[in-house]
Amino acid sequence: MSDLNTKANIAGADDFYAELLSIHEGRSKEQSDAINARLILLLANHIGDRATLSDAMQKAVTAGQG
């Protein structure tokens, strides 16, 4: 069983979202992709739990597929 929290968990959602966009401002697609990859790796390591990571990866793949 995965512990992936899919309930709202970030205080100040709009602030967070704005900050997420701001780190990409003025960057090329390549630089942004690199930042995103580093961010994913940092967050994944913080979570650590393999089942939770697998669950998150699967949900990332299936979301948006209708």
Binding site: D33, A34, A37, R38, I40, L41, L42, N45
Partner: peptide, 16 residues
């Protein structure tokens, strides 16, 4: 992109 991200992070952070 991910390979380079790992290498860039590894320079400063043990976890990578």
């Amino acid at each position: 992109t991910f390979r380079n991200a790992v290498l860039d992070l590894a320079e400063a952070h043990d976890f990578a």
